[in-house]
C-alpha cells in the first residue's frame, strides 16, 4: 500500500514537472512578472510556433538565458489565440530543447490584453519587452531582433 502511494506520488510529480515546462497562464501572470520587484532584468518575448521570424530569433534569447544570471527570460507563446490545442507548443519546446521558461498565454480576445503589455504594441509578433524593476525603466520593441540587439536594449534600462 505504502509502495503504491509512493508510485502514485512519483507519477504525479512526473506529470506535474512535464506540464510545468509550459503552463497556460492568464494576462495577470504576465502583469505580475512585469511588476514584481526583482534583482533580475525581465526579458519577455512574445512568439508563436507559426511565426518564422520569431523562431529565427529564439536562439538569441536562449543564449541570453544561459549566459546572464542578471536576466530572467520568459518566452510567451501566443499560439492559443489561433489554435486551442497547446500540444504543438509542447512538441516545439521538446524538439528545440528550449531551456528558457516558456508560458502559454491562454487568452482569446487580444484587444482586452495587448495594451496591458504596451500601449504602442500593434499585436504583431515577434515583440519583446524588457523591464528593470530596480530602475523602473522599460523598453518595448516590435520587430525581429538581430545578434547584439538584445544587449543594446538591455543596456538602455540599466541605470
Amino acid at each position: 500500500m505504502k509502495r503504491l502511494a509512493f508510485i502514485l506520488l512519483g507519477f504525479c510529480w512526473l506529470t506535474a514537472s512535464a506540464q510545468s515546462e509550459a503552463p497556460l497562464v492568464k494576462i495577470q501572470h504576465l502583469e505580475k512578472v512585469m511588476q514584481t520587484e526583482s534583482d533580475q532584468i525581465q526579458v519577455i518575448n512574445f512568439w508563436a510556433t507559426w511565426c518564422a521570424p520569431c523562431i529565427k530569433e529564439l536562439p538569441l534569447f536562449e543564449k541570453l538565458n544561459a549566459d546572464r544570471q542578471d536576466i530572467k527570460v520568459t518566452l510567451v507563446s501566443v499560439d492559443i489565440d489561433l489554435d486551442p490545442d497547446p500540444d504543438k507548443v509542447y512538441r516545439f519546446i521538446a524538439r528545440k530543447k528550449l531551456k528558457s521558461e516558456v508560458v502559454i498565454l491562454n487568452e482569446t480576445d487580444p484587444n482586452s490584453w495587448i495594451d496591458k503589455i504596451d500601449k504602442s504594441w500593434s499585436g504583431a509578433i515577434p515583440a519583446t519587452l524588457i523591464v528593470n524593476s530596480s530602475t523602473g525603466k522599460r523598453k518595448f520593441v516590435e520587430k525581429e531582433l538581430k545578434e547584439g540587439d538584445l544587449e543594446e536594449l538591455i543596456a538602455t534600462v540599466k541605470d
Partner: peptide, 9 residues
C-alpha cells in the same frame, strides 16, 4: 480602433 495578434508585415 482595435488591436489583434498577427504576423508582422
Amino acid at each position: 480602433r482595435t488591436k489583434a495578434i498577427g504576423c508582422t508585415i
